[in-house]
Structures are given as structure tokens and as C-alpha cells.
Design a protein around this nucleic acid. Structure first.
Ligand SMILES: [Mn+2]
Ligand SMILES: [Mn+2]
Ligand SMILES: [Zn+2]
Ligand SMILES: [Zn+2]
Lengths: 172, 172
DNA sequence: TTTGCTATTGCAAGTAGATTGCAGTAATTT
DNA sequence: AAATTACTGCAATCTACTTGCAATAGCAAA
């Protein structure tokens, strides 16, 4: 059984450039707006799944602050958080974005079909560390065969007691 | 809109009676209260993981309604929802209860170490069906070895397009 | 380039799951 | 029975997320 796990660890990296991705989205949606581009760019550059708020912060930081030299025009206003939620919802319907997990601060989103890692959180101290590349591919394959579903994705999060916190346990 | 889990959990293979479970909890907590017993009883009898609100409703239904014959005493008042949340939190800290998944209506809780199944939800029509017994044991074993964590549990949910809804897809 | 259509946006208000403060209650020990 | 204090209920609060609506901005036809 562990052989399955080892086999699943060498992941195919499907590299689609941001421009290719945007072109694909342009064909799929009625309007390729500034907000949609910003959300896709944020997710494209992300090293791990992001919450809507993290996407918002990422976009806001990428925009010039208002100074006497750079006046407050519509170009340098951040995208409203509600617009980010609506764009994520639309991109989800197109299967271009997926909810990967529900963290303590809300859902985390990522581009579909990207190699990704999962994390484990200590329920006692809150420490969150990587458990490495996703090992769910074979399980999803199995589910696809068994159920006939397509576009299968998963929401996963692990919890436990980290090495520093292992004591006072009532369980086996 | 949202479908309810269909027969998501079987009874524990290692049969611990409710009385044995309560005895174990009695030794682990300072006070074995009416609320704690009610929460544990609800989870013990559940066929699938329950939300805090579902536990609340379960407890309320199990208590006599007030009539002229059965006056409104403290015995037939339901347990307050906030008390259910606090008891679940305490039982989680003792690793006796775990959050199994985040449904559309909130977190679902179950007794620890119970065999369980997982489900897949169609993102288009909302249909939710079983994918069979949990297949995560090997992955958890792998994570335990790699990270040194103990008491490892997981939150998992699958989504996809069901056979009846497979069309208009922008992904591969 | 200008114009028209309407998808999309920002703002504000609303929803609902979950948390917190606190005064009173009840489970347990002596 | 009395003492101790973990626990409870109520109300207020927090916050991730959604919804209504008038204004805006993609996009393409003219
Ligand atoms: Mn994964
Ligand atoms: Mn499982
Ligand atoms: Zn820890
Ligand atoms: Zn469907």
C-alpha cells in the first residue's frame, strides 16, 4: 500500500503560462475584467492555496499607494473583497478554481490541476507544517471509476498533536 | 439545495457501549454534566457526522414538550447551543471528538476512531453520494512517520460533476 | 471612434456559524 | 450540608460570506 504513496509523489508539472491561462479564461467568460485578471494572477503566483482575504491583500499590495506623485485614480484602487468572492465563484463554476481546504480563517482557493501540498495543524499549539505533495491522486482515480464523477477535487486538512505537544491525551 | 448525508457512518467495529464511553469521559473531565451526556449520546447514536445545530435538534427532540400535564421544568429544557459548542471543544481537546468535514452549514463532528465513509458532492446539482469506506489510513500512517505527529485525523470532502451533469466544462 | 448592451463592480446591509463576558447554577468533594 | 468552582444560559459580539441595487466598464456593432 505504501508503494502507491511513493508512486504518487512524483507529480506531473503541467506548466501553463499566466498569459495562456488568461487567454483561456477570455474565451470562457463574457468579460475579462481587471478584477478577474488580478485574482488569477494572485492564484497563479501563489505557493499555496489562498483565502479570499489573502488574495485581497496580495492585490492591494501590488497596487501603488497614493502619493502626490501618484494620485488616487481608479487604476490604483484595490479590488473589493466582494468582487473577489464573486470572481472565485464564477471561476469555480468553470472548474478553473477549486476550494482546497477550510482553514481557521475560511476557505482556501487554488487553480485547478496544480500540484499542491497539504498541511497538518497541531490542535494544541496551532503550528502548521507541510506534509508534502498531495497523495490523493490515486484515491480520486478510484472514486472516478467507482462513481462516474468527473472534475473530481478534494478538500483535505490534517490535524494532530505535534511532537512538542504530545502529552495529556485521553485517546488510544 | 443542500442534500443530507446518506448513511455516512456505520457503528463502531470495536464496540464500546455508551455507558463505557461515559465512564471514560467521567475519568477525563472534572464534571460529567447533563449537557456532556446529551452531546455524547447524540454522537454515539448518529449514523453520520453531525453539525452542532443537528446535535441541538437531536437533543431537543429527545426531551418532552411542555404541556399542562408536563410542566416546563429544568428537566425538559434543551441544552443551549453555546453549551454544545463548548462541550464539543472540550471533547475535541481530549481527542474524543473530531471535526470530520466542513459542510455548507458548518463543521460536522463525530466520535474519534469510528470507521466512516466519505462522500462526493456534485458542484452543479448538489447530489451527494457515498464513495465508500475511508481510504486515508495509509496516508495518515505516512504523515505520522514523516512528521512525528500523533492523534492524526483528517477533514476530507470530494466534489465533482456527477454523471447527469457532465457538460459545459472549461477544464480538461 | 462612438454608441449601446449588459455583465460586472462597489458600497452597504444582511445572514448565520461560532465565540465571548458574566452572573447564576449544579456536579463533585469533604 | 456546605464549600468549591466547572459549567451553563443569555445576550452581545465577531466574522466569513452573501445579497440588493445603482453605477460602471468590457466588448463589439455601427
Ligand atoms: Mn490534495
Ligand atoms: Mn476518512
Ligand atoms: Zn503543537
Ligand atoms: Zn450533478
Amino acid at each position: 500500500m505504501l508503494s502507491i504513496l511513493v508512486a504518487a509523489m512524483s507529480l506531473p508539472s503541467v506548466s501553463l503560462s499566466l498569459e495562456q491561462l488568461l487567454e483561456r479564461v477570455r474565451r470562457a467568460v463574457p468579460r475579462l475584467t481587471k478584477g478577474k485578471k488580478a485574482v488569477l494572477s494572485a492564484l497563479y503566483g501563489a505557493k499555496h492555496p489562498l483565502t479570499a482575504h489573502e488574495i485581497y491583500m496580495h492585490i492591494a499590495k501590488g497596487i501603488h499607494h497614493t502619493t502626490s506623485e501618484t494620485p488616487n485614480t481608479k487604476q490604483n484602487l484595490p479590488i473589493d473583497l466582494v468582487t473577489i468572492y464573486r470572481n472565485l465563484e464564477q471561476l469555480e463554476r468553470l472548474h478553473l478554481v477549486v476550494k482546497i481546504e477550510h482553514s481557521q480563517t475560511g476557505w482556501r482557493y487554488a487553480l485547478t490541476d496544480r500540484p499542491h501540498i497539504h498541511t497538518i495543524t497541531c490542535t494544541e499549539c496551532g503550528q502548521e507544517i507541510s506534509v508534502g505533495e498531495c497523495l490523493m491522486a490515486d484515491i480520486e482515480q478510484f472514486i472516478a471509476q467507482k462513481t462516474g464523477f468527473t472534475n473530481i477535487h478534494h478538500v483535505v486538512h490534517f490535524t494532530g498533536s505535534c511532537p512538542q505537544c504530545q502529552h495529556h491525551s485521553a485517546s488510544t
